[in-house]
Simulated assay, not measured.
Amino acid sequence: MDKTVEIKAGEIKPQNERELVLTRVLKATPAQLFKAWTTPELMTQWFAPKPYETPLVEIEPRDGGKFRTVMKGPDDFHMDSTGVLLKVEKDRRIIFTDAFGPDWKPTEKAFFTAEILFDDLGDGSTRYTAIARHWSVEDAKEHEKMGFHGGWGQVASQLEAVAAKL
């Protein structure tokens, strides 16, 4: 997948070498996307790029709430990530990090903080922006090599398919 995206009015560009940004226009409303992002049963359907899956999601959609995902995939891939939701604005944005776990206890190694934005385009579609902010340039490069643009782009399409049915 081509990671080059034409920047249009309202879209966000990376602010430095530690940020990765993905923007898509999705055929779903901000309310539908927000619900798909904050309902565990819905998140398990779209959160990991196929053939990976997310069999477990725990989310408390509030500022300071727990955010845990377990991903599984080919070659015995298993990733259990627990973090916190820093900011939750219904139908507008979600910010989460893996820097802290429940009860604001620091995790062993923070990798990134994500900001998810839902901008209503007024025609039943939404400008969806995912920003991954890393603590180091090396972490951002590693995330990019892991397939940030392709994987998060595929996940955005999967999210759209789930949200559009709500």
Rank of each mutant, 00 (worst) to 15 (best):
V88M: 05
T4M: 09
W135M: 10
G83W: 03
V5H: 10
G147D: 11
E19L: 11
S81K: 09
S125H: 03
I7C: 05
T4E: 05
A110C: 05
I95Q: 09
E144L: 13
W37K: 06
K50R: 09
D80F: 09
A163K: 01
T107M: 14
K66Q: 04
P51L: 08
D91N: 14
W152A: 08
K13L: 15
I95E: 07
T113Q: 13
F111Q: 15
H134Q: 09
K87I: 12
D91K: 02
F111P: 04
G147H: 10
D76K: 15
K145M: 15
A130Q: 07
A31C: 04
W152I: 12
T39S: 12
N16L: 08
L159H: 02
Q158S: 05
S81L: 14
D120S: 08
D139A: 14
I94H: 00
T39Y: 06
V137F: 07
F100T: 05
I131H: 04
E53G: 14
H149F: 14
Q15I: 08
W135D: 12
E115G: 04
D76T: 10
M146A: 14
K145W: 09
E11F: 12
E17A: 15
V162P: 04
F47P: 02
A36Y: 08
G147Q: 11
G83F: 09
E11H: 06
E17W: 10
K50H: 02
